Amino acid sequence: MADLDSFQDESDEEMEAMTPAEVLEKMEEAWLNEKFAPELLDSKTELVECMLEQLKEMEENIKRAKKGDFKVSIHRLEIDRIRYILSSYLRRRLEKIEKFTVHTLEAEKDRSSDDNALMSPAEFKFASEYAQNMESHFKKIVLRHLPDNLQAMDPTETAPRPNLDSYVFLRVNEKTDGVLVEEETLEAGEEIIDLEVADQHLMRYKPVASLVTSGAVSLI
Rank of each mutant, 00 (worst) to 15 (best):
A2I: 10
D3W: 15
D3V: 10
Q8T: 11
E10T: 12
E10S: 11
M15D: 09
M15Q: 13
M15P: 01
V23T: 13
K35C: 06
L40S: 01
D42A: 11
S43G: 05
L52P: 05
E57P: 00
K67P: 10
K67I: 11
V72D: 01
R76S: 06
L77R: 14
I79A: 09
Y89K: 00
R93W: 01
I97R: 00
I97E: 00
E98Y: 00
V102W: 00
S113E: 15
D114A: 14
D115V: 08
N116P: 08
A117P: 09
P121C: 00
A122L: 13
F124I: 03
A131H: 08
N133M: 12
K139I: 12
V142A: 04
L143C: 08
P147I: 05
P155S: 01
D165H: 11
D165Y: 07
S166I: 09
V168G: 00
V168K: 03
V168C: 03
F169V: 13
R171I: 10
V172A: 01
N173G: 02
K175Y: 10
T176N: 03
V181G: 01
E182G: 07
T185A: 03
T185Q: 04
L186A: 13
G189N: 08
I192N: 04
D194C: 05
V197D: 01
L202M: 12
R204F: 03
A209M: 09
S214T: 14
A216M: 04
I220S: 06
